[in-house]
Simulated scan of single mutants.
Amino acid sequence: MINLQNIEKVYRTSTIETLALNNINLHIRTGEFVSIMGPSGCGKSTLLNLMGLLDAPSAGRVEIGGETVTQYRDKELARLRNQKIGFIFQSFHLINDLSVLDNVEIPLLYRKGDASGPSRRQLAREALEKVGLSNRMNHFPNQLSGGQKQRVAIARAIVGQPSIILADEPTGNLDSAMGNEIMSILQQLNADGATIVMVTHDETMAKKTHRLVRLFDGAMVGDSVLMSNA
């Protein structure tokens, strides 16, 4: 599903060069739930951004769903992101002036020739039902708790029925109870067929996934199977 081969990522300025990722080789199979851990600044979010086609490697090859995307143009990358990848962020990134339902519908607005307005609304409602927020669809983000905001963010990520979900610290801003609820939703989405990659600092959350990849100073230093996804 996701294949990274000999990946390097270098950030350069006029005075300094920083090696963010160094010779990363990682294959994530369809249906896996993989967590990525490591200290701050070790390259976790950079790696997730490469998987999500939000950034390009300085060297190496990226394959998503069997497509080699390293040489794709921006328009082709945007198409692939919109069709196959859902993003969940630690800080939710909801638009406060839009209702919950409108926030969830946003990704569908960028799909050319796809669902009509009424169909988009129905897909957004169904996504909110999956995360248990059908009774909050007409509320606004500032009327929700942190856990509810993250559920909205998950609904927005899954409304287009992506095969891949990338989550960057999805429980990082939540207390343990709310964090466990969010993890339960992610586990159910995985059980329903989604391939999930999650960056986390929480060892307890990581142990609820199939596999744990550890980074240090931009390099992979561990890759452990925690449970089978067969």
Score class of each variant (00 low, 15 high):
M1K: 05
L4V: 10
I7V: 12
E8P: 00
K9D: 05
T15Y: 11
T15R: 13
I16L: 14
I16V: 14
L19R: 14
A20F: 07
L21T: 04
T30N: 15
T30M: 09
F33V: 08
V34T: 08
I36L: 06
M37T: 14
K44C: 01
N49W: 02
M51C: 08
M51Y: 02
M51S: 03
G52D: 03
G52H: 04
L53I: 10
D55W: 04
S58L: 08
A59C: 11
A59Q: 14
G60E: 08
V62K: 05
E63S: 14
G66T: 12
E67F: 07
E67I: 07
T70P: 04
Y72M: 14
D74Y: 06
E76M: 12
R79D: 08
L80C: 07
L80I: 12
R81H: 11
N82H: 12
I85G: 01
G86A: 09
G86C: 07
I88N: 01
I88G: 04
I88F: 04
Q90D: 04
H93T: 06
H93C: 09
I95R: 00
L98G: 08
S99C: 09
S99I: 08
L101R: 06
N103K: 02
P107N: 10
P107A: 11
L108R: 03
R111F: 01
G113N: 12
D114M: 02
S116P: 02
R120V: 02
L123P: 00
A127V: 11
A127T: 03
L128D: 05
K130W: 07
K130Q: 15
V131S: 09
L133V: 11
N135G: 03
N135D: 15
R136K: 13
N138P: 04
H139C: 13
F140P: 00
Q143L: 03
G146L: 05
G146C: 09
K149M: 10
K149H: 07
R151F: 06
V152C: 03
I154V: 14
A155T: 12
G160I: 01
P162M: 07
I164R: 01
I164A: 00
A167D: 00
D168W: 00
N173G: 12
N173A: 15
N173I: 07
M178R: 10
M178F: 02
G179L: 04
N180K: 15
M183H: 11
I185E: 07
L186W: 02
Q187V: 09
N190H: 13
A191M: 12
A194N: 14
A194W: 00
T195H: 06
T200N: 01
H201W: 03
D202C: 02
D202P: 04
E203L: 13
H210P: 02
L215K: 00
L215P: 01
D217G: 07
A219S: 14
V221N: 11
G222S: 13
D223E: 12
D223T: 11
S224P: 01
V225Q: 13
V225P: 00
L226N: 09
S228Q: 14
N229S: 15
